[in-house]
Amino acid sequence: MKRFMLICFAAFWSSVVSIWAYAVLATDGVADSVTEQRVISISPAELARHAGTDDCWMAIEGVVYDFTTYIPRHPAPPVVMTDWCGKDATQQYRTKGYGRPHSPAADALLPQYRVGVLEQSE
């Protein structure tokens, strides 16, 4: 029993350190490609044209993302996302519909789907 617990304890730290090392090493390249993106301005009308499940853009906190390829990977059923295709989903992203914000992991996912910034309506 004590031996088994010690093995679990050691396994935990070795797996956490391995996962962390993998993530840190692999993140370097991704971060570079994200910062290289140009700033593209997208109008609300342009955003609204991408309102289908096969072409789904959303605005969150003034940034426009193309989530078409992400929808099938979302942990909750697709319908919670597809309702917001072509719209500003900031509020929905912040509350998940019941007052809880998305996780830091979700925040970290956003940059790779970024297509531009939303034009502010005057």
């Binding site: 962390w20 993140t27 990977r73 992991a105």
Partner: peptide, 19 residues
């Protein structure tokens, strides 16, 4: 939970483990 985010890329993995 960190491994579950592997398909979403290393940034998501890192943010799950050490946000």
């Amino acid at each position: 939970l960190a491994l579950a985010n592997v398909p979403a890329g290393p940034q998501a993995v890192l943010a799950t483990l050490l946000p």
